[in-house]
Every structure is written in C-alpha cells, then in structure tokens.
Design a protein around this nucleic acid. Structure first.
Length: 278
DNA sequence: AGCTCAACCTGGCTGC
DNA sequence: TGCAGCCAGGTTGAGC
C-alpha cells in the first residue's frame, strides 16, 4: 500500500477538488473490504458537505457535517477524482459523487476500509483504530530531538527487532515496509537489532532518517511503489531511488557489498550487511 | 503486556 | 502455452 507519503500525496491531490463540495450520491459497489462498508452511508451522506480533509497515520479523514469518513487504502487501494460519468472499472469498490465529479476507491485486494464515525460519538481522535497510533512523523512532538526521545522511550524493554518495532507504528506512524528498509539503511542500523538495545545516537539517526525519507517521498509526488497512482491517475515518478528495498544481491550504493534480504515478521527486509551494524 | 503468526483477497511473476 | 506456487504496499485478532 500506500505508505504515509502516498496517502499524503493522495490527500493533497483530492483536497482542492472536494473541499466544501456537497455529496450527491454514494454507491457501494462491493462493500466487502477489510470491514463491511456501512450501508447507511448511501442514505445519510448525500447532502452533506466536505468540511476538511486530514490524515492520521495512513488513514484519510473526511470531515462531513454529521461525522467523519475514515478511508484506508490497505495494500492496493487508490483514490481518484474523475468525471462522474466515467465508466466503472474492475475493482472499483465505492464511489462518492459530487455533482459532476466523483471520488472513486479502487482496491483490487480489498484490504482497504471505509468507515463512519458520527460526531455524536465524540471527536475523531476517540475512534478505536486511531487511538493506538503513534505520533505523526512531521508533528512538533517528533521534531528535532523529541523524535529521538519518542523512539528511545517507546523502545525500552522491547525485544522485537527495530524493523518490526518501527513498522508497528506504536511509536511513530507512517513507516511501511519499503520506507522502513530505506530509513534503517540511511540511519545505518541493522534491522535485526533488538529495539530495546537502540542507543540514543541511533534513535536520533533513525528519527532523522524517518522524517527525511518520508518527506523526500512526499516531495517527489508519489513514490517508488510499483502500482501507485495519484489522484490524477499518474504513477509516481520513481524519483526516489531505493537504496535497499528490492535490491537483493545488487551492490550497495555506498560500499558495493551485496544487499541482503531477510524475512522478519512475515515481511521482507533489505539491508546492507556492511553499512548497517548492530 | 508483548510476541508470533494466520488471516483477509486478488493479480502478477517465476519456473517447471 | 499452461499451471502451480510464491510474492506483494497493511493491519487485526487469536493464542501463547
């Protein structure tokens, strides 16, 4: 999926089209996503305006008049703004019509989600799925030395690998499998090192690397992700050249040592055994 | 509480 | 060419 940068690029892409617009119709084509898409959306949403479009971790939050739409893209989801008459494609799951334009969730693997949080249930921060999330990588709380402190504090006593620790998003959100390998490479930390044994300097390098890698991916408007298309339907520009991810047996760009691939928590990790020490 | 792992689902690629 | 097997961006929930 889309990791945080792809979700943010999607947010930036759809916002100018949708802000302040009134929903005219919702069509749940196939609501069997991660969780069933609530049927009531088709009834209660028409007539409601888009008040704001925010992001929390990899969730997009569309504030409507009476509640929030939570959208998650899962592994293969994309959101696009199209003319409302545009023919549906295979794997289009939900459409949100705003008069002449339509927001479409396309998601082949159906790991995405469309949920509803009514304002009567309190602020969106109370939504269970958002409560477990770590801090935002670009927030004040994670800026400068604070980022290092967040990583250090959360990792104390943890025996899992730093790769899995970072991916879990309990400390800082948004780092998916690809950018996790990239961040650890940049920070020169071995992915199998126990999180609890990270030193303060390592936490500082990692916090910086996470911010740097995610920001660079956002700036280049997309990503290195294979199937990613932004809200206009354009693929990412592949401007972010990966230094580790998917480079098994290829020479490290720093030291020429062959990149290694290992499996951690059922996910592939790529790293340079020479540059990344425990 | 923390850790591991199966599960959700579809398509694309590899290798026989 | 056909087909079986494996792999893929995420995240929850069960079981220990």
């Amino acid at each position: 999926m889309p990791e945080l940068p792809e979700v943010e690029v999607t947010r930036l892409g759809i916002s100018p089209h949708l802000m302040g617009q009134t929903l005219s119709a919702v069509n749940v084509i196939d609501g069997r996503l991660r969780w069933p898409v609530p049927n009531l959306l088709e009834k209660i949403l028409p007539g409601q305006k888009v008040r704001s479009i925010e992001r929390r971790g990899k969730y997009l939050l569309l504030e409507m008049d009476t509640g929030y739409l939570l959208l998650h893209l899962g592994m293969t989801g994309t959101l696009r703004v199209l003319p409302s008459g545009d023919p549906l494609k295979v794997h289009d799951r939900v459409t949100f019509d705003f008069g002449k334009i339509s927001l479409r969730l396309h998601d082949p693997r159906k790991f995405g989600a469309v949920l509803w949080h009514p304002k009567s249930k309190g602020p969106i921060e109370h939504q269970v799925l958002l409560q477990k999330l770590g801090v935002e990588p670009f927030s004040e709380e994670f800026s400068g030395d604070l980022g290092a402190e967040v990583l250090y504090r959360h990792s104390r006593g943890r025996s899992i690998s730093v790769k899995q620790f970072l991916l879990a998003g309990q400390a800082v959100v948004g780092v998916g499998n690809i950018y996790c390998s990239e961040s650890l490479f940049l920070a020169a930390i071995h992915p199998a090192k126990a999180a609890g044994k990270l030193t303060k300097p390592q936490c500082a390098r990692l916090a910086h690397a996470v911010r740097f890698i995610l920001q660079k991916a956002i700036d280049t408007g997309g990503s290195s992700l294979k199937d990613f298309v932004n809200s206009e339907g354009d693929p990412g520009h592949f401007m972010v050249q990966s230094k580790a991810y998917d480079r098994k047996d290829l020479p490290c760009k720093e030291c020429k040592t062959p990149i290694k691939k290992i499996v951690q928590g059922q996910r592939s990790t790529y790293f340079c055994p020479q540059c990344q020490k425990r």
